[in-house]
Design a protein around this nucleic acid. Sequence first.
DNA 1: AACGAATATGCCGTCAAGCGAATATTCTGA
DNA 2: TCAGAATATTCGCTTGACGGCATATTCGTT
Lengths: 128, 128
Amino acid sequence: MQVIQAYQCFCDETRLRILNLLLEGPLCVCHLTAILGVPQPKVSRHLKALRDGGALETERCYNWTICRLPATPSPLLEANLKCLQDLRAEERVFKADLKTRKRTVARILKDPGDALPAQIRSLAKDCC
Amino acid sequence: MQVIQAYQCFCDETRLRILNLLLEGPLCVCHLTAILGVPQPKVSRHLKALRDGGALETERCYNWTICRLPATPSPLLEANLKCLQDLRAEERVFKADLKTRKRTVARILKDPGDALPAQIRSLAKDCC
DNA sequence: AACGAATATGCCGTCAAGCGAATATTCTGA
DNA sequence: TCAGAATATTCGCTTGACGGCATATTCGTT
């Protein structure tokens, strides 16, 4: 059953943290990795699981991969993203991640430096 | 995270089938087992998983265990039970189970026989 | 007390999920 | 074409989920 695969997306803390972060807007893999503070291969594998479960869309821009929630989420996904919103009040990890996200994004916007190749600087507003 | 345990409930076909059946009303374990057509220990263990995940309440009546959905379900559970309702249109297993449920319940009500000990016959309307 | 029905649990084997470490791949810039 | 950054994948391992089978437990009946 395909539903089961969809629910699998919500059965892992890292994946929930990723979804929580993406509720605020798109992020590229390297920023996700930085915010979560976990090894990059781990993030990459969880992203694949989310994609397979229909909970994530990715778009390749040069050598960046922009991650966002599906433009037209399934009813199931939509309902559970709403639940995830409400969970922020209870789970400190989620709130902490949002803080880290803000710090990270602010730092990148202020000083793109080598963190943001020139060609995709215009993407910053989109993915940060 | 407790949420993860809650989502685990939805990550198994047997558990989804059980929830689908209970959406129609309470059932005791032996009838659940009969309707699902799977070994009784398997049902029992899945029921425990559902209980641990907050998706099931059980009540012991003599040597029967009546299973029902929580009287006051969590928002998460409520949202996903609604999703489950909608899934009936797509997944044949769910529809087939509901048919079997009707047949089974009708048979029991018509001829309780040894399937329904005298003392709990009055419970039949409740759990069937 | 003994038996049977309903239910739960223990044991064990199998298999998938998840992880870390290393490596492959893809793309960009020099 | 070469180097380096970003991302994906492979490998080997550990752990947990699930199932089947047998057995324990609980409760009612005789």
